[in-house]
Simulated scan of single mutants.
Amino acid sequence: MSDRFLYTTPLDPLARPLIDELSQEYESRYGEFYQQDGGPREMDKYAPELFSPAQGGNFVLLLRDGQAIGGGAFKRHDDTDTAELKRVWTHSAQRRQGLAGRVLQELEAQALRQGYARLYLTTGFRQPEAVGLYLRHGYTALFDTSLPHETYRHLPFEKWLRVAALARAA
């Protein structure tokens, strides 16, 4: 087994199986829930260019023996020093190996290299695995965690990267 990270684009053919599976997962969990207001489907919301370094973003795949087994991205969130995480995903056949955490740590390190101090993200209320992942990796929930997740449409989190990096260095 040989794992490595590859910085690329969502349009890379290596990313297609992972993105297709993620799209199916969103459909199975949410169906038409988020389209009730006439908005686009989740995977159609963001142009691939937003995840390019030229636009302040990045897209990474975790490859094992040349096949994408995980991945994720970030894009510029606003005009400050915040990036927004998107599409952190592990192929269903490769789960329970800590791969999503590895992708998350890689994205955090890359965001720091690109000058970001803070990461922001939202996950859906029907994704308890994602909630657990972010809480385990030091993200702060920006919602009342004592309420049922269904209370919210989106569950926002943040993490201050420079503070975390300084703590690790100490």
Rank of each mutant, 00 (worst) to 15 (best):
G70E: 00
Y134S: 03
P53M: 10
L63C: 05
Q127M: 15
R41C: 05
A47N: 15
R96P: 03
E108W: 03
A130Q: 14
L133W: 14
Y26T: 04
G98V: 02
R136G: 02
D78K: 08
L50S: 09
P13R: 07
R95N: 01
L99F: 01
Y30P: 07
L119G: 10
Y134W: 11
E158G: 02
D37M: 10
T151S: 15
L161E: 13
A47C: 10
F74P: 07
M43R: 12
L119S: 09
S92E: 07
L121A: 00
Q36N: 10
V60C: 14
P128Q: 12
T140S: 10
R87N: 02
H91E: 00
L121D: 05
G56P: 04
G115M: 07
D144I: 08
D12R: 04
A170H: 14
M1W: 04
E27F: 06
R113I: 05
P13D: 04
L135M: 14
S146P: 00
V60W: 04
Q55W: 07
A170I: 10
T90I: 01
Q110Y: 03
V60G: 06
T80A: 15
K45H: 08
K75E: 14
L63N: 04
L142T: 04
A83H: 11
L22K: 03
P53E: 14
E25S: 03
L85Y: 01
